[in-house]
Design a protein around this nucleic acid. Structure first.
Length: 462
DNA sequence: TTTTGAGTTGTTCGA
DNA sequence: GTCGAACAACTCAAA
């Protein structure tokens, strides 16, 4: 059993099939080399992965089993292991990235050539890309029709129970072990409550306490109205089928459609493996992005002078997480206010988010930037002040992450530069010393972004 | 093949 | 302060 992004025992079809063979099991995880297009995990995700893997090891230990971890290229590790251990079957759950699929195909070919039976399963998605298509047979490019088609098939997505019994083979070769990842800045992240048990607890908490208010509270940056399941999903500590099953019979369309966006992103990446580095809409190849390392640095460090942007970016740095609404605000700010290429933001998120996922990250950045599938209309440019006032109305989120502004009254918390001198003095804030001037003026930036979009409009000619 | 309706998440302006 | 309209034109999906 080759574990990859499915680090759980429940609703794990490959593991269930492995158990059903009755054969002794070798559970393997490979820390795969970043080559042949495989992207090295970012620092935060890597930190999170170690916790997921440790939790799976503990779960397997309850069956007196082990997770054998290797490092290298799967095409080399698995055939060697197959020879050494007389492996007769290889089972795994499918991945959907381009490079990952290529690796899996080569592995399957080699193992099959060595006489092993290779089987793969769907453990990651509610509906796999091969299962739905438009009438003309193509991949969907607009969310609504995509989700209409996928949503209709949800009843067929029943979770597979966790195996009741597992027997394990001894590993005849030496016992490899991964050196712990360098913790770096991530060592101070809050406890992710990793693993299958943590994920199920989080799901139950969500369905019991938060589902009813989800539609309105999901956007509140100060209230934690989201499910917080993203990292659990990312490493497969829980499956989308298990979530759908837990939601059955409850009004949960809005939340289901968020799972739908996760599916849509995976389908887009399947259709366009270059999604993480190439504009989905080629017209954006002409978009006049600016090179501005100083502004990019200010954005990453939370020093743009816009409180909601800076609070969100500091929160990301401290926790490896950011609520969805905040992700949209900071992404819009980078691509539209600063006119910096979405790939810069995508790669910062890739390195700092514990839930970084190549499909979701790329599809969402492109969506905000306007280059993606079903992208935001060109005129949708978030005003960071209005967004702050709407979704962090008392400024609680800003006060937590930007303590230098903590004493500002809420009227000015999202726009310190417009506070009267006596208000600033009363709050102990000196602009330019305690808080930077806005890196760019909103009205100016908005007009500049609209002009940039005009420059690549189709009517402007090829 | 042609036509038609529609498209996650917003902001600003003027009445 | 509230409300509706305007803000490019385009491409997709399905009739």
């Amino acid at each position: 059993m080759w574990f990859r992004e499915d680090l759980r025992l429940g609703d794990n079809p490959a593991l269930a099939a492995a158990a059903a063979t009755g054969l002794p099991l070798l559970c393997v995880y490979i820390d795969e080399d970043a080559r042949d297009g495989l992207r090295a995990l970012g620092g935060a995700a890597r930190w999170r992965l170690d916790r997921a893997r440790a939790a799976l090891e503990a779960d397997l230990a309850r069956f007196h089993g082990r997770l054998h971890c290797f490092r290298g290229a799967a095409e080399a590790v698995l055939p060697d292991l197959a020879r050494a251990a007389n492996v007769t079957h290889l089972l795994f759950n499918r991945r959907h990235g381009g490079a990952e699929r290529a690796v899996d195909a080569r592995v399957a070919e080699r193992l099959a050539a060595a006489g092993a039976r290779v089987e793969s399963f769907n453990g990651a998605l509610l509906v796999e890309p091969e299962q739905i298509a438009t009438r003309s047979g193509g991949a969907f490019k607009v969310f609504t029709p995509f989700w209409r088609a996928a949503r209709a098939r949800l009843d067929a997505a029943e979770p597979v129970p966790a195996p009741e019994k597992l027997t394990f083979a001894a590993l005849p070769v030496g016992t490899p072990a991964l050196a712990p990842a360098r913790p770096g800045w991530a060592e101070n992240f809050p406890d992710p409550d990793a693993g299958e048990a943590g994920a199920l607890t989080r799901l139950r908490h969500f369905t019991d306490e938060k589902l009813d208010g989800y539609e309105t509270m999901r956007d509140r940056i100060d209230c934690d109205g989201t499910s917080n399941l993203s990292a659990h999903l990312r490493f497969g500590e829980i499956s989308p089928r298990q979530i759908v099953a837990a939601l059955r019979g409850r009004p949960a369309e809005k939340f289901l459609s968020e799972l739908g966006w996760r599916e849509f992103s995976a389908h887009l990446l399947h259709a366009r493996p270059d999604l993480p580095w190439r504009n989905f809409n080629a017209r954006f190849d002409r978009f006049p992005y600016r090179s501005d390392p100083e502004a990019l640095l200010a954005w990453t460090r939370g020093r743009t002078g816009y409180p909601i942007v800076d609070a969100a970016m500091r929160h990301l740095w401290r926790t490896g997480l950011m609520p969805n609404r905040a992700r949209m605000i900071v992404a819009s700010f980078l691509t539209k206010h600063l006119l910096i290429d979405w790939r810069e933001g995508e790669s910062w998120f890739w390195d700092t988010l514990i839930d970084a996922d190549s499909a979701n990250n790329a599809a969402s950045w492109q969506w905000v930037a306007g280059s993606g599938a079903d992208a935001a209309p060109y005129f949708r440019i978030f005003n960071p002040v209005l967004q702050g006032e709407k979704f962090d109305p008392d400024g609680a989120f800003v006060r937590t992450h930007c303590p230098e502004l903590a004493r500002l009254p809420k009227r000015y918390i999202h726009r310190p530069w417009s506070a009267p001198a006596e208000v600033l003095a009363g709050a102990g804030v000196v602009l330019g010393r305690d808080w930077p001037a806005p890196i760019v003026d909103h009205d100016f930036a908005r007009r500049r972004a609209l002009e940039a979009f005009g420059a690549i409009a189709a009517s402007s000619g090829e």
